[in-house]
Every structure is written in C-alpha cells, then in structure tokens.
C-alpha cells in the first residue's frame, strides 16, 4: 500500500496547463485541484478539451506548458505506463478493449502493472488461482461476472465501457479518470453506475469524471469544474454551477443541455 498523501497537498494539482494543436488551444492555462476522497466532475460542451485534459494527466499527451502534480510528484513528461503504475487509472471515451482476449484476461492485464517492469514478468504465469479470483471479484463488482469468459470485442458497447472501468480498477488506482462512462446508458443503468462510483469512492478511490449527462454529474459529484474552449469557465458545487450565469450562457449557446437535463 502506498503511503498516505500529506493532508495539505491535493491528490492532483494541475497548474497552468496548456496543450495546443497548432493554432488550436485545446487546453489553455487550466489550473485546478482534486483532493483525496472527492468525486469531481469535469463538464463542458463538445470540443471543450476534457478528453485532452485526461490525456495530459495520464501522460498520453505532453503539455505545451504547465505542470501536473500527483501526490506532490511532478508527472508531466512521464510516460503513460509510469503514471498508471503510480496509481492513476483511466478509461477511454472511445473504448479500447483488448478485443481478442476474454473479459477476465482484460482485467488480468491490468493486474500485472507491478510485475511488468521487472524481468520476473517472464517467469511467472498469470493464470494463477489468486489472480483469477481477484479478477473475478472486480468483474463481480462492476457487474460483468456473467461475461468473464466472453471475448471482449463481442460485448455490447455499454458493457465495454464497464470493462474499461474494471480494467482500470485492476490497477488498484488511487485516482480514477472516467471519460463519459455513462454515455448511452438507460436511466437505471446510469443509477447503477453512480452507485458503483460512490462505492469506489467509499473504498478510498478518488474520482475525476467527464460527463455529458448533466443530471448524472450533478447528482453524483461533490464539485464540478466547467471547461469551455480550453479554459475553466466555472468551478464549484453542483448548485453553484447550475445557477452560474456564465455556465448557462455557454451551454445555451451550444446545446441547451442544462435546461433540458438539469
């Protein structure tokens, strides 16, 4: 178990972060923090830069400028696998299952994070009873137990999104980044997912999630960061965000999501 973070340092500290694609400022001078034990929502219209921000945090993109600290440690410039091994799990908005592997083996792949850097990885067989039992536990947890032996690419998209979560949980993450995990779910499925996320938080996992479904985000998150055109538009409790004139303006300007769904 990694040692406890100093109480005063935020778990995730993003300072003045920018990422430009040519002339496009996808993320532009963003600063915010996530504290241990929080569920924080990251919302914003299409193209606001939410996924880009996730890619920066998880190391898939290098910042044009700015810094990212995880548990006080600078992680900008580290490779994604190193950041994952520090305890940052993530899902992909466009799912990326290991398609030819079984659902269970997808989860097992996430459980190898400690052994991959060592040559021991060549000695130890991964289908051990303990590893399989733990993978089954995780699958049970996210409601995929019935599909454990199915090939991952045969699952419907909603279940593949859940597999993304299961695979990230296999890392025993400290921070979990969820990119639109509720997309396309029915009301009941979204409720189940919210319950799962709360349960994960209660077990000590801090959660930063991107969400388009306003009701889902407002009900679940303790704090919300609103991104618009790469910049932070507002930050606060769901109540504060819902009544924030700038947020309403930005959303009505784009799609009116707040009025329809909140």
């Amino acid at each position: 178990m990694p040692e406890k973070t100093n109480r005063n340092t935020p778990l995730l500290d993003i300072r003045n972060l920018s990422r430009h694609f040519g002339g496009l400022k996808a993320v532009d001078g963003v600063s915010f923090q996530v504290n241990e034990g929080e569920i924080v929502g990251l919302i914003g219209p299409n193209g606001a830069g939410k996924t880009t921000l996730f890619n920066l945090i998880s190391g898939f993109l290098k910042p044009t400028a700015g810094e990212i600290y995880f548990r006080g440690l600078p992680i900008h410039g580290k490779r994604p696998n190193a950041i994952a091994r520090l305890g940052v799990g993530r899902t992909f908005q466009i799912v990326k299952p290991f398609g030819e592997l079984s659902v269970r083996d997808n989860v097992l792949a996430g459980m190898g994070h400690n052994i991959y850097p060592s040559l021991q990885a060549f000695l130890h067989v991964y289908h051990t009873p303990t590893a399989i039992a733990r993978a089954n536990d995780i699958l049970e947890n996210v409601g995929l137990a019935a599909y454990a032996d199915a090939r991952a690419d045969t699952l419907p998209i909603g279940l593949q999104r859940r597999l993304e979560i299961a695979r990230a949980l296999a890392l025993s993450p400290i921070l979990l980044l969820l990119d639109e995990s509720a997309a396309g779910l029915t009301h009941q499925e979204a409720e189940d997912l919210a319950a799962l996320i709360r349960d994960l938080r209660d077990r000590g996992i801090t959660i930063l999630l991107v969400e388009h479904n306003m009701r889902f985000a407002m009900n679940l998150c303790e704090r919300i960061v609103v991104l618009n055109q790469g910049r932070i538009l507002a930050e606060g409790t769901p109540e504060e965000i819902q009544t924030n004139p700038a947020v309403i303006e930005a959303y009505l300007g784009h799609s009116g999501v707040v009025r329809r769904e909140a």
Binding site: S58, G59, F60, R79, P80, N81, A82, A84, R85, G89, R90, F92, K96, P97, F98, G99, E100, L101, D105, L108, A109, G110, G112, H113, N114, I115, Y116, P117, Q120, A121, F122, L123, H124, V125, Y126, H127, R167, A168, A170, L171
Partner: peptide, 25 residues
C-alpha cells in the same frame, strides 16, 4: 502464459490501452 506474454498480447490489441494498464509498450 506469463505476464510478459499477456503484456505482448495487450500491446498487440491496443497500444494505448496497454500503456494505460502499466505496460511499457
């Protein structure tokens, strides 16, 4: 059957997802 073999399969299937679970591609 080893973890290394699993890592190779993972990177074959999706390099980004492999990195995301701690595999140095």
């Amino acid at each position: 059957r080893t973890w290394a073999g699993l890592a190779l399969t993972a990177l074959r299937e999706d390099e980004d997802a492999a990195e995301a679970v701690g595999v140095s591609v």
